[in-house]
């Protein structure tokens, strides 16, 4: 895949908000984004040379909204040159303006990269002007029907790190509380830009929606 040339830019403010100011209204909790929930769809990995999409399954494994934390696994099904589906573990930062803002501040993403990616989501447009000012730190997202997140793959679950695949980048993600759909854009300065991730909440062949739960002690 062609490597995207990274534009030089001043470093953006760190995304982690230090301390928690009282009165912050967090994004709404959504049962479709709770532990055990599964999503299925595709990631478009097309480039100028080829047109390609991998089937992708995601399952939420951990959710701690107080800390703006979400995690789970992502399974890529028809990865070329891989014998089995490739499963990775990812951790998510929920843009809640308490723990994290829209500015990434790491993973080689400048605030310009952030805004360029977030702006791909129509639901982000109303927040654009404020995000340009302060990363969205002062926004109230408690009534927003969308949850914005960054998902960063941390390790390969079922293959070794030398499998020839990379998890260097991360996803800008927008989850719809309305119908459980997930849209995302993969960002890695060394990969094709704007690889689109499209997932739908899946009931795994059941006649309705089913929910498990666990509780750590």
């Amino acid at each position: 895949m062609p490597v995207r040339v990274v534009e030089s830019s001043s470093s953006s403010a760190p995304s982690q908000v230090s301390g928690s100011s009282p009165g912050h209204a967090l994004p709404p909790a959504c049962t479709l984004l709770s532990v055990g929930q599964a999503f299925a769809g595709t990631q478009n990995v097309s480039s100028s040379q080829k047109d390609e999409a991998w089937r992708v399954n995601v399952r939420i494994q951990g959710c701690d909204l107080d800390h703006g934390y979400l995690c789970g696994t992502m399974e890529a099904l028809n990865v070329p040159l891989a014998d089995t589906p490739v499963v990775t573990f990812w951790e998510g930062e929920v843009v809640d303006t308490k723990n994290y803002t829209f500015f990434t501040g790491k993973w080689e993403a400048t605030s310009e990269d952030d805004i360029r990616h977030w702006s791909k989501f129509p639901s982000f447009v109303p927040f654009l002007s404020q995000v340009e000012v302060d990363g969205g730190k002062s926004l109230d997202l408690s009534n927003c029907p969308y949850i914005f997140m960054r998902w960063k793959e941390q390790y390969f679950v079922n293959v070794g790190p030398d499998c020839g695949l990379t998890i260097a980048g991360f996803y800008y993600v927008c989850f719809s509380c309305i119908d459980g759909t997930i849209n995302g854009f993969y960002y890695d300065p060394n990969s094709s830009p704007f690889q689109k991730l499209e997932l739908k909440s899946t009931n795994e062949g059941r006649s309705g929606f089913s929910f498990s739960s666990y509780e750590l002690q």
Binding site: F89, E91, Q154
Partner: peptide
């Protein structure tokens, strides 16, 4: 061990 095993990241691994 209870505290340490609260890590979903490690549970997942």
């Amino acid at each position: 061990m209870r505290s340490v095993t609260r890590s979903v990241k490690n549970l997942s691994a």
